[in-house]
Simulated assay, not measured.
Amino acid sequence: MSNVAGRRSQHPSVRDGAAGFTLIELLVSLALMGMAAALLLQGLAMAGVVAQRERASISGLEEVIAAQRLLRSGIERLRPVTRSDSALPIVELRGTAGILTFVGPPLDRMAPDALQRFRLTRTASGDLVLYSASIRKIDLDRDGSDLIGWTPNTLLRGVRDLSISYLGPARAGLDRGWQDRWWDRPQPPELIRIRIEFAGRDRRKWPDLIVRPRATTNAACRIDALTGRCGGES
């Protein structure tokens, strides 16, 4: 009897030990699951950051491509309009390292076929802007800093530096090559190069945009005051 009682007295302690060991396993499992969840959340957060950066990179690339396409289209189609305020055949195209002003068809192909004046520049706030105005506006400040009457078309933001160069024949004893000024010439430059640097940690890249205007000095024209087109155009 004593042996049976002894064996019976041992049963509760065995069950208690088994229950305690199972509780420890449960706590360890919960801890491991918590660590796994934390790692999973961290991985998801990192993946979200990477995806956001990729989207920003793609968006920035699309902005650069769109800006280059628009500028290429405008500069390629510029018109060598002869200035009416000069006795010499001077084309209405003036450019410096930071500003380019020229005449060409409207950017919107669905717009009326009246020539526009364009001015490409960088604003003080770092925006790359292509201003436009109808060539019929006689009170427009063509070459100064007054932009009243011009319509701004913002191409890019966050631009730190804009550099424009012009390739053409030698002038004033200079060798033929890239120049940072094209002013009151009888013909457009052979090539126009536009370089841009972005500000700060901006990852966008701007490949050199080099454009050859289709117009030549032989296409110089005077504007018809009624149609806004080159004289002789149909």
Rank of each mutant, 00 (worst) to 15 (best):
W150T: 14
W150Y: 12
W150S: 08
W150P: 06
W150M: 10
W150V: 10
W150N: 05
T151H: 13
T151Q: 13
T151F: 04
T151M: 12
T151A: 09
T151N: 04
P152H: 06
P152K: 08
P152F: 03
N153D: 15
N153L: 15
N153I: 13
T154Y: 03
L155I: 04
L155Q: 07
L155E: 01
L155F: 01
L155S: 03
L155C: 02
L155K: 03
L156F: 08
L156N: 02
R157S: 15
R157F: 04
G158A: 06
G158C: 04
G158E: 07
G158I: 11
G158M: 01
R160T: 01
R160K: 10
R160I: 00
D161V: 02
L162R: 08
L162W: 05
S163A: 09
S163T: 02
S163G: 01
I164G: 01
I164K: 02
I164N: 00
S165T: 15
S165P: 01
S165R: 15
S165D: 09
S165Y: 09
S165N: 13
Y166L: 01
Y166W: 06
Y166S: 03
Y166I: 01
Y166G: 03
Y166F: 12
L167I: 00
G168S: 06
G168R: 00
G168P: 02
P169D: 13
P169N: 03
P169Q: 08
A170I: 02
A170M: 09
A170Y: 01
R171K: 12
R171I: 09
R171G: 13
R171F: 09
R171A: 13
A172P: 04
A172R: 14
A172V: 05
A172F: 09
A172Q: 11
A172S: 14
L174T: 15
D175P: 05
D175Y: 01
D175V: 10
R176T: 12
R176H: 02
W178S: 11
W178V: 05
W178A: 09
Q179W: 00
Q179H: 09
Q179T: 10
D180V: 10
D180I: 10
R181G: 00
R181L: 14
W182L: 04
W182P: 03
W182C: 09
W183A: 06
W183P: 08
W183I: 06
D184C: 00
D184S: 14
D184H: 08
D184G: 03
R185V: 08
P186L: 01
P186F: 00
Q187I: 05
Q187M: 14
Q187S: 11
P188D: 02
P189H: 04
P189R: 04
P189Y: 00
E190T: 15
E190M: 05
E190Q: 13
L191M: 11
L191D: 06
L191R: 07
I192E: 05
I192C: 03
R193Q: 15
R193T: 04
R193C: 05
R193F: 03
R193K: 13
I194T: 03
I194W: 05
I194D: 05
R195E: 15
R195N: 15
R195I: 06
I196D: 04
E197H: 08
E197A: 12
E197D: 15
